[in-house]
Computed example of a mutant assay.
Amino acid sequence: MKAIREARGISLQQLAKDIGRDPGFLSRVENGQQGAGAGTLHLYASRLDVPIAAITHEERTRDQDRPGSPHRDDLDPSAVGTDRSC
């Protein structure tokens, strides 16, 4: 969330003012210290002009099923680096 906001050049204070939320609250949400309700998330996404999935990290099922998706449980081992030294 924070990365998208910053990429748009919007300060936390400006976003808070625009959507009628406390900047401290939004900061905690962006840093994963507090959850936000659907209404706040929709306002946030709308103000940043992004789909709600962009800030909630939700993917449609078919996106998760596509080959190479980082969210698949059964990644093709050939798609992952072969360096096992870590």
Rank of each mutant, 00 (worst) to 15 (best):
E59G: 10
M1L: 03
Q13T: 10
T56G: 04
I4M: 02
D76A: 03
L48I: 05
D83K: 13
S46D: 10
H71L: 13
D65G: 06
K2Q: 10
L41Q: 11
F25C: 04
T82A: 12
D73W: 07
G24S: 05
Q33M: 01
D18Y: 03
T40N: 08
A54M: 07
Q13R: 12
P77N: 08
F25I: 07
S11A: 04
Y44N: 03
I10P: 05
R60N: 14
D74A: 10
G39V: 12
S78D: 15
Q14M: 03
Q14I: 06
D76E: 04
Q34K: 13
R66V: 05
A36I: 14
R84Y: 07
V80G: 01
R5S: 11
G39E: 15
P23K: 02
F25V: 11
T82L: 13
T61H: 06
L75K: 14
R84F: 09
E6D: 08
S85Q: 05
T61N: 02
G35D: 15
G37D: 08
A53F: 04
T56R: 08
V50H: 09
Q33V: 00
G32F: 07
R28A: 09
A79N: 12
P70Y: 12
P77E: 05
Q34E: 11
R21F: 00
R66K: 14
R84E: 08
R5F: 08
R8E: 06
G32K: 09
E58D: 12
E6C: 07
I19M: 01
R62Y: 15
R66S: 09
R5T: 05
N31H: 02
R21S: 00
Q14K: 11
D49L: 02
D18G: 07
S46Q: 05
E58T: 14
T61A: 13
S69R: 14
P67T: 08
S46P: 01
R72H: 07
Q34T: 10
D22N: 11
T82W: 14
G35Q: 15
R60C: 13
Q14R: 10
N31M: 05
S69N: 15
P51G: 02
L48T: 05
A3M: 09
F25A: 06
E59R: 14
T82D: 13
T82N: 12
E30W: 00
P23R: 00
I19L: 00
G81M: 00
S78E: 15
V50K: 08
T82E: 14
T82K: 13
P51T: 07
T61C: 03
H57E: 00
E58G: 08
I52T: 07
S46V: 01
A53E: 15
K17N: 11
A53S: 15
T61E: 09
Q64E: 01
P70A: 14
G24Y: 01
K17S: 06
N31T: 09
A53D: 14
D73L: 11
G9D: 05
E6A: 13
G35S: 15
L75S: 10
T56P: 05
